[in-house]
Write a protein that binds this DNA or RNA. Structure first.
Length: 765
DNA sequence: CAGTGAGCGAGCTTCCGCTTGACTT
């Protein structure tokens, strides 16, 4: 018999708590939720006032059985799930599954994991808060209704296995709408004027000032006349202002800000950040990594202060507590911080070390003094023009928290260099060394990265720390969006320079539109989004979650009844589902491009069974239509008639080589040449399947044959020693074997090969 | 490795939020 059984959500938490509680207490974990709505019949008896049908899922049976065993052996049971809506529901489900009396079940919460906090909690148990539980039930049931009633509409109207939901559909909408802004963006250019001035101080020492003109010029001629004006102008200092300022450290990490910074500073994907953080948490090195709170425990504040004072001195320390800003935050946990702030570094993998370092610095910096800066702005006037040249510089007078850490930003323009401004006074004269007018293009709004999408969702109050990473995975798995790179395109920009009274013009080529790890909407994502916007505008509204969260809050304080709230939502919602199903909207998401000049038939593009496709003619009335798949990166929305028609020009027969046809076509893995049963890939960015000729095709075939010849180093019956991408290896029965270090492949014998194969097979077992 | 788009019909897909492994490459 155990005296006291404490149930928490996380096994790592169970382990640490058990240390504080001593022998009288046995601490176990539920591993999160233990019951969920059944998948049969939507899991809700809608007619019967939304009665939920809960069941223990198969993969939870083992945990639940162990909990039952422990519970039946315990005198007292304490349920210590997290102090938020979901935690309260977990407590209630536990009580139900373990046959506990709801009114007498001891419910406790830990605000921080210290001996004092834990014994305080044990001394003041409460009972389960059914209002809070009901607000969770409302949340759960509503999400199921939305997801399981809309998704089947998509299967019927668009494609099987698609999905829609309160969170994922808004995430997709954000990406689709951003893409449309980019598509419709009209880039404009103007000439930006920058100057290098020389100024002499009283001692005759020269220094350089970099400044930008207050005006930009749309036309090259205008920029040129301005430079000519500069050539004959007298410049002097118009004004000097020196302003003191402060910079304050960023709040400690939440899940969302950790994902953003780990992406910006370390290049981690959102999922990668969470996996590395999980490792650190399980090793007891950081606090819980799924949190929306910026709060630090008293102990953490104290320990951080000790570290700062010891390492940097008293004046670098400033204890502060941060208010959580994000909408709908439930603050069941602390901010993400080092468990022991006096450990500035940890052992582990490279990524664990890097992420820990980031968390340590952010936490410590958050408890450090403001940085003090001095910002100098000067204006340089011209005697023959109202235009001024402005320069600004910043000097850090006291570094404060900047000694340890400064937050990065999302804009990657990299033009925030803070120059040092020499000491100058009003009316001092300057001479120009060089003045440049360069053509600058305006840029469209940036595409989302995984991390900036998380930031946006958090701002809208959509999704929770535990779901940001899975949501991003889901919308990619459904094919709605794809994380991609784009090489960018080149364009010419004009440059005018004024030096020694002479204006010269030149041009330079710049790259624009280069993208790395950005989220691009795919055709199916756009079609689904438009369908949802047409039929379920209230669900994909950016304020929908915030609005229903208000209702959940009212349920949580007992102001309204949860099933009434669901009833009010479901009535109109279900009507829109019915209407969407009844609508006779053929060809959802298809676009008519025009008429094929050869056949006179209509050309359309749509999402077909196997993806986006162009179609000439119709299949109606037994007609045969012709089909051609769209290329990757071609959008139904933007493809032109010419581009679509070109898709039908493949496959092409280029002629003959060695009495066999040479065919060029494009397949699953891009464009290729087919010749006597063999395939040869075209070179990316070099060869175009629509224009390639026989000569070049033969060249590609010969090249590959040559490479194949060099591939075989040795041959013993069915054993081959081959040259691969990663160096020489042995191949037998379609299995590959690595060569031992320092082994010369040219001197291998058959016996040695067999020996290597045998050894490799042994170690595998 | 290297497309496909006839038609019928059975059976399946799907949500969000709380937790970790048990799998394979």
């Amino acid at each position: 018999m155990i005296e006291n059984l404490v149930i928490v959500e996380s096994p790592a938490k169970a382990k640490t708590i058990e240390k504080y509680l001593g022998k009288e207490f046995h601490v176990v974990s539920s591993f999160g939720h233990i019951r969920d709505l059944s998948k049969k019949n939507i899991g809700i008896d809608i007619e019967n006032n939304f009665e939920p049908d809960y069941e223990v899922p198969k993969e939870k049976l083992k945990v639940v059985n162990e909990l039952r065993k422990s519970a039946s052996n315990a005198k007292n049971i304490w349920i210590a799930s997290d102090e938020d809506r979901e935690g309260e529901a977990i407590a209630w489900h536990l009580a139900a599954v373990l046959d506990l009396d709801i009114d007498n079940t001891k419910r406790i919460v830990f605000h921080e994991i210290t001996k004092e906090a834990i014994s305080n909690a044990i001394n003041k148990p409460r009972t389960i808060d059914m209002n809070l539980v009901n607000s969770q039930q409302a949340r759960r049931v509503l999400d199921r209704l939305v997801g399981f009633e809309i998704s089947p509409v998509l299967w019927k109207k668009i494609q099987p296995a698609l999905s829609a939901g309160r969170v994922q559909s808004v995430a997709v909408r954000l990406i689709v709408e951003r893409e449309r802004e980019i598509i419709s963006f009209q880039s404009e250019s103007a000439f930006r004027i920058t100057a290098l001035f020389i100024i002499k101080n009283d001692k005759g020492e020269e220094s350089v000032i970099k400044a930008e003109a207050s005006k930009r010029f749309r036309k090259e001629e205008e920029a040129k006349s301005f430079l000519e004006l500069c050539a004959s102008s007298n410049f002097e200092i118009d004004s000097v202002t020196v302003k003191p300022g402060t910079r304050v450290p960023a709040a400690p990490f939440t899940t969302s800000t950790l994902q953003q910074e780990a992406y910006r500073k370390l290049g981690f994907s959102v999922a990668q950040t969470m996996a590395v953080a999980q490792k650190l948490y399980e090793a007891g090195k950081i606090t819980y990594m799924r949190t929306d709170s910026t709060n630090l425990s008293k102990l953490a504040l104290l320990k951080s202060k000790e570290v700062i004072v010891a390492q940097y001195g008293e004046k670098y320390s400033k204890t502060r507590q941060y208010k959580t800003k994000s909408k709908g935050a439930q603050e069941a946990h602390e901010a993400i911080r080092p468990t022991y702030p006096d450990n500035a570094a940890v052992t582990g993998s490279q990524n664990e070390k890097k992420l820990y370092d980031l968390i340590w610095k952010r936490t410590i910096a958050s408890q450090m003094a403001d940085a003090e800066v001095e910002r100098t702005t000067i204006a340089i006037g011209m005697n023959n023009s109202p235009v001024t040249f402005n320069a600004s510089g910043e000097v850090v007078k006291f570094d404060g928290f900047l000694k340890v850490y400064s937050e990065s930003t999302d804009d990657d323009s990299g033009e925030s260099e803070k120059a040092l401004i020499p000491e100058v006074r009003k009316n001092m004269p300057l001479t120009y060394k060089k003045i440049t007018a360069d053509q600058r293009y305006t840029t469209p709004p940036p595409r989302y990265t995984e991390a900036s999408l998380v930031k946006k969702l958090e701002e809208l109050g959509i999704g929770r720390p535990s779901t940001y990473a899975p949501t991003i995975t889901t919308i990619q798995n459904r094919g709605y969006v794809l994380r991609e790179e784009r090489p960018g395109e080149k364009r010419d920009v004009r440059i005018l320079t004024l030096e020694k009274g002479v204006v010269n013009s030149s041009k330079r080529s710049e790259l624009f539109g280069k993208e790395k790890a950005k989220l691009f909407p795919q055709n199916i994502g756009i079609v689904v989004n438009d369908f949802l916007m047409d039929n379920f505008p209230e669900i994909v509204d950016y304020h929908f979650t915030a609005a229903i969260e208000e209702q959940f809050d009212k349920i949580a304080v007992g102001k309204i009844e949860w099933t009434n709230m669901l009833g009010e939502f479901y009535g109109p919602f279900h009507e829109s589902v019915k209407k969407a199903l009844e609508k006779r909207d053929r060809k959802i998401g298809s676009r008519t491009l025009g008429v094929d000049p050869k056949s006179g038939e209509e050309v359309i593009v749509k999402v077909g069974r196997f993806g986006p496709v162009a179609q000439i003619g119709t299949t109606e009335g037994g007609n045969k239509a012709r089909f051609a798949s769209l290329h990757k990166n071609q959008l139904i929305e933007t493809i032109t008639l010419e581009e679509a028609l070109q898709l039908f020009n493949l496959p092409r027969n280029l002629g003959e080589l060695e009495e066999n046809e040479v065919i060029v076509d494009t397949g699953k893995y891009g464009p290729y040449i087919r010749h006597s049963g063999k395939f040869y890939s075209l070179k990316k960015g070099v060869d175009d399947p629509y224009t390639i000729d026989l000569g070049r095709a033969i060249e590609i075939i010969r090249e590959k044959r040559e490479a194949e010849k060099q591939k075989v180093i040795k041959e013993f019956d069915d054993i081959l020693v081959l040259n691969g991408r990663y160096g020489p290896y042995i191949s037998k029965d379609k299995k590959n074997y690595r060569l031992p270090k320092g082994c010369d492949p040219k001197k291998l014998t058959k016996e040695e090969c067999l020996d290597i194969i045998e050894k490799a097979n042994k170690t595998k077992k």
